[in-house]
Design a protein around this nucleic acid. Sequence first.
DNA 1: GTCTATATAAGGATAGAC
DNA 2: GTCTATCCTTATATAGAC
Lengths: 205, 205
Amino acid sequence: MTDPRFSTKQRILGAAEDLFARRGFAGASLRQVTSAAKVNLAAVNYHFGSKDRLIEEVFRRRLDELNAGRLAALKRALANPRPELEDVLAAFINPALELCLDKEGGAAFVRVLARAYAEHNERLRKFLSDNYGHVLKEFAAAFAKLLPHLDKEELYWRLDIVAGAVTYAMADFGVIKRRSGQSEREFRERAAEHLIRFAAAGLRE
Amino acid sequence: MTDPRFSTKQRILGAAEDLFARRGFAGASLRQVTSAAKVNLAAVNYHFGSKDRLIEEVFRRRLDELNAGRLAALKRALANPRPELEDVLAAFINPALELCLDKEGGAAFVRVLARAYAEHNERLRKFLSDNYGHVLKEFAAAFAKLLPHLDKEELYWRLDIVAGAVTYAMADFGVIKRRSGQSEREFRERAAEHLIRFAAAGLRE
DNA sequence: GTCTATATAAGGATAGAC
DNA sequence: GTCTATCCTTATATAGAC
């Protein structure tokens, strides 16, 4: 009994994720969240203390796993004696793709992640940088090895562009719609393929 | 007297632009806007009718000029008998760059524009598509001519990726910081150069 | 851990004087 | 066109019973 996957806490996190994706952090109220989660309004403050802390927990719940997956995939890619640029890009992108496709609410979460960039919120930036900054560092080092013709500044410019393109594409902000008859999985996998090819070309240039 | 550039209406639009960029549409209240604009709270409803209509006017004030500039630049680029891919990309990007650099509040506006993508707001999407969709169509046609090896679906995928990278980079969502001693103009121009080179490589691939 | 009830602040919008 | 004052709704957060 009391399956932890459907605990009050998890239901709140799931509802918050969905509403933050659709309406933003300021746009989604705790009343809307608790109502969607079918829990009492007071439960948010009991379990999380405040709306800001709830927001952080929405990130932590997914990012711990996502970034562990990215690091593991990077390690596998670099186990190859001559890794390809595409492999490192895939190590970054594919775990996000799996999150989108395999986890309940995963697609909502990547949109929440994209919102975080737009927020420019210092508290949120610090939280993300403190907790997950090392992952970006490891990827940057791997790209640097594969692209020795780029100096550090040039490399960072391009990685910043790649990060933007990936974030935007994963969050499905674009105008391309899924064709009828095409599954969500097919659609997303195509998007990831295009993204990897495009980014690899831009990085190699 | 009564310089229209500093009218109550324009002051509200300027303050709204700044606050929407920094806090989002839901995150910035009309009280904050009118306080920053040094006008009375009731002035928003008098001049615009509602917060939603104010948001639309914030877009219209800039986008009319921005998109006219983009179309004019596209026309100039296509006047060349053998236009380069980079020229068409520049026709799209440079007017946004000028807006950022030369117009008071321009930098805030491009961030507002990026927020609009994240919103997925149907009302806002329809407003933007109705009023400025034809500009994107003209650019898509120009790219199609320059990239005959790409079928329509392939082309649209890539343009979607480019749009994301441009939006994200222009809104300054990335982690790269301006170096001390580097002017805002230098910094932004470098960003645009990198963006154009990167996007051209990804499109040609 | 979950509820009701409520404190307290802030939100958008408007009425009506000037 | 601009002001004050106010209506009404919604917000976050908490106190205290169960």
